[in-house]
Design a protein around this nucleic acid. Structure first.
Lengths: 158, 158
DNA sequence: ACTTGACATGTTATGCTATAACATACGATA
DNA sequence: TATCGTATGTTATAGCATAACATGTCAAGT
């Protein structure tokens, strides 16, 4: 699995984004149409989450439609396919950095630089499932989003 | 601590809501003004989360202002004081069922009856903190929201 | 009493987020 | 070639949230 901390570190982002895109193409095949592909590329330009309207603007710049459904449909598709994630706390979307690997990660959002990383969440889901089971509740899907400081910003601010 | 499963079971809701309101008054004192108190009462009418505009409507019925800021301000206050929680997944708010006890619970949202319960989340936060620390990330606040089936609905649907 | 400042509420206006509903196009396949 | 599923485009509107300003109230300090 890709190093989850990558989002917070200086790295060869071209390679990093390219890798993800290649894997996405393998997963999604022909259904990764131009709008959808471009949408994913837009999300992959940074490790930030991006609002639908921000994405829409960039899609329009690229010659696609400029009405909200254009962006929402592409984003919804990507989320469905596990190629992107929706960050509810931010009303925004972020590219999935390790598509294909089944996961429902915990999101770590840096309040300083706005970068978003995906942390492995197996232990978290186990704890959640147990807490829920104690009450008789069956968890189907869960989202875990944490706000805090990434290592780079923590260093800078101290 | 109050039984977290209460939200999903038939119970004497008058008493349950009354207790919470009494505790809220003790915590908030004079600053629990009429609008705020009424807002909390509205949230306490059910164990569901309620949108700001739904709350606003009921506030207007009670003779308070009927513009969005009226509801948002009261709700924000309650959230600040730990008397209510914001459920981001639903863009909605729910009364805190055990105010005073410091907590950042995990929310269990029944997809069938829409009831929301607060599960103890100490173990979840521990797991999250550890996963984050592995990446060098410092968690400040986190929200954990799970969608699934409550025990009552699970029984009904089977 | 008077002034000041903090807080609460009300109102106007607007911005941001999201989706319903309908129209058009294109390829696969029967 | 008729039809169906899928994708995209467009119009319109619904739903969520806040900025900015106006008014009122009460308590502290003078």
């Amino acid at each position: 699995m890709t190093d989850p901390a990558l989002a917070f570190e200086a790295h060869d982002h071209r390679t990093c984004a390219g890798d993800v895109l290649t894997r996405a193409e393998a997963i999604s095949g022909a259904r990764l149409t131009p709008v959808r592909r471009r949408t994913l590329e837009i999300l992959l330009e940074s490790h930030r989450a991006m609002g639908a309207y921000e994405v829409l603007e960039k899609l329009a710049d690229a010659g696609f439609g400029n009405q909200p459904p254009v962006a929402y449909r592409a984003l919804d598709y990507l989320v469905d396919q596990g190629l992107a994630h929706r960050i509810r706390r931010l009303n925004a979307f972020a590219a999935c950095m390790h598509p294909g690997e089944a996961h429902s990660p915990a999101f770590l959002i840096c309040k300083s630089c706005a970068a978003v990383a995906e942390a492995p969440a197996a232990a978290i889901h186990a704890a959640l499932g147990k807490a829920a089971a104690d009450i008789g509740f069956t968890v189907e899907r869960a989202n875990v989003e944490a706000l805090g400081l990434c290592p780079t910003c923590a260093e800078t601010e101290s």
